[in-house]
Computed example of a mutant assay.
Amino acid sequence: MLTIIDKYILKRYLATFSAMLLMFIPIGIIIDVSEKINFMIENKIPFFDIAVYYYNFTIYFANNLFPIFLFLSIIWFTSKLANNTEIIAILSSGISFTRFLRPFIIGASIVSLFVLFLGFSIVPAANEGFNNFRYTYLKTGGKELMRGDNTDVYRQISSNEFLYVNSFNTESKVAFNFVLEKFDKEKLVSKITASRIKWNPKDSTYTMYDYSKRTVGEFGDKIEKASEKNAKFSFELEDLTPVVYIAETLSLNKLYRFIDKEKKRGSSNINVYLVVLYKKYSVPVSAFILTVIAVSVSSMKRRGGMGMNLTIGIAVAFGFVFFDKIFGTLAEKSTFSPLIAVWFPNIVFGILAIFLLRNAKR
C-alpha cells in the first residue's frame, strides 16, 4: 500500500523524467534540423519523408539516451528534496533509507517495463525508418553502405550446404561467380556453378547463366551444363549481405530466429546481432542501478548545493555511457564475449550503487 509520501515521490519521479524527455528531445531535433536543413532543401526531400524521419528520430533518440535522462531527472528532483530538508524530515519520522527508496524502485520498475515494451515492439520499426532515411538521403553511396561487405561472400546455408559468390549487386540483385556445394558428412555430393545468378522476385526463382552442375557418383561423375537455367533455392540473395543495422529493426521473436539462422550460416557479424539482443534486456535493468546511484548521491545536502550533485551526476551518467559504448564496440569488433560486454557496465555500476547506498545509509 502506497503512503502519501510514496505517491508524492513517485509522482515527482515520473513527472521530472517526462519533463526531461520533453525538454531535451526538441533540443535534439533542433540541432539535427540545423545540421541537415540545407541538404534537405537542396535535394528536395519530400516533407512527408522528413516528418516520418523525425518521428522515428524522437523514438531512436529517447531510447538511446533514456539512461542519462532518467539519471539526471532523479538527481534534479532528489537534490531539491534534500535542499528543502524534506529528506531529513522523512528520515526523522522513523522511515529507514531503504524504505525511503521504495517509491524510487517502483518508478524505476514502471520506466523499465515501458522501455522493455518499446524495445520489443516500437523501437525496431523506428530504428528501421531512422536508418533507412539516413542511408537513402544523407550518406554518399548510402544504399551500398547499408549493406555489409558484399564481396567474396561465403556462407553455410544449411547443415550440409555451402554457398559462395564473388560479389553481389544489391540494386540489380545479381551475384557473380556463384558456387553451391552440397556435402554428405565430409564427402562432396554435388556442386553447382554459374558465372552469375539473378533473383526473379515475381516467381521467387533464380536464373543462372553459364550453368554447370557436377553430381558425384560412385562409378563416375555426372555433368550437366546449360547457358541459362531457372531454379528455386531455399535462400534469398539478400540474405548474403543483410543491412548493417538489420538486428536493430527486428522484433524480439524475429531477432531470435534471425540470430539462430545466422549462427547456422557461420555469420561473421553474429557478435553485432548478439549485442543488440542482450541490450534489450540490460538497458531496462540499468534504470534500477542508475536510480539507486542517483538517490544515494543526491540525497545528502552538500555545500555546493544542486550544482554539485548535478556535476557528480553528469560525470557518472557519461561514465556509464562511455563504458557501454566501449565494451559494445569491443564485442562487435573482436572475439570478446557479447554477453559480458553488454552486462559489464551494469555489473560495475551495480557495485558502485551498493557502495554508495551503504554510504548514504550512514
Rank of each mutant, 00 (worst) to 15 (best):
L255K: 04
L138Q: 10
N359Y: 14
E181I: 14
L240D: 04
F355G: 07
L290C: 01
V283H: 08
N150C: 10
I106Y: 14
A19N: 01
L10C: 04
I27K: 01
M146D: 14
M1W: 02
N150K: 14
I95Y: 02
F349G: 04
G129L: 13
M208P: 08
I5N: 05
S190V: 09
N43R: 15
F288Y: 12
A226T: 05
K325L: 09
V244C: 04
K361R: 15
I5P: 02
L118Q: 12
V297K: 05
I122F: 13
I314L: 15
N131A: 03
Y60P: 00
L250Q: 09
L138P: 01
R147I: 12
K361I: 10
I75Y: 05
K44L: 13
K325D: 06
F130V: 09
I192N: 07
S195D: 15
L65K: 00
A175I: 15
A247Y: 11
I68C: 07
P345T: 01
I351F: 07
L339V: 08
K263I: 11
I326K: 08
A19V: 03
K202Q: 06
I197Y: 11
F114P: 00
R257I: 12
I314W: 07
V272R: 14
T291P: 06
T170Y: 15
M308T: 08
F258N: 08
I157G: 02
N56L: 03
E248Y: 13
E42Q: 10
I289F: 05
G28T: 12
S73D: 03
F219H: 10
I50N: 01
Y273A: 05
S227W: 00
M306S: 13
L252H: 10
L118P: 02
Y8V: 08
E218R: 10
T249P: 11
D210I: 04
I45M: 04
R358K: 05
G266K: 08
I259L: 09
D152W: 07
W76P: 02
N43F: 09
E86Q: 12
R147F: 13
L22H: 05
Y154C: 03
S167Y: 12
E42L: 11
F77E: 02
I37E: 12
V244S: 11
A82L: 07
I27E: 01
N230F: 12
P338C: 12
V342E: 03
V189P: 05
I74S: 04
L240E: 01
F183S: 13
I314E: 07
L357Q: 11
D32Q: 15
T85A: 04
P103N: 09
V111L: 13
Y60N: 10
I106V: 15
F349M: 05
G28S: 14
L22T: 05
N309E: 11
I106K: 09
T78Y: 00
E128C: 08
F133P: 14
F318E: 06
I157W: 01
L163C: 07
G305V: 08
